[in-house]
Amino acid sequence: MATSKKTMTLNLTDAEMSALEELCEKKDLSKTAVLRQALRLYQAVEVRAERGDKFFFEDEKTKEKAEVVML
């Protein structure tokens, strides 16, 4: 599954880098892999939002829903 890739430099604050490192640890992924996952998620949400769909978090127990507003 080797697809050609482009390289970029990313500037992050300490807090952002810390969050990224936490996600890497939690998900057992490299920094690149976490950021690629984030991009996929952002694109998927954007596509659904453009179709008119809404994005919710649902509490598993209470079934209470909270809409996530995308900027």
Partner: peptide
Amino acid sequence: AFKGLLAA
């Protein structure tokens, strides 16, 4: 439905 989606 899935065309162009990076996650699919």
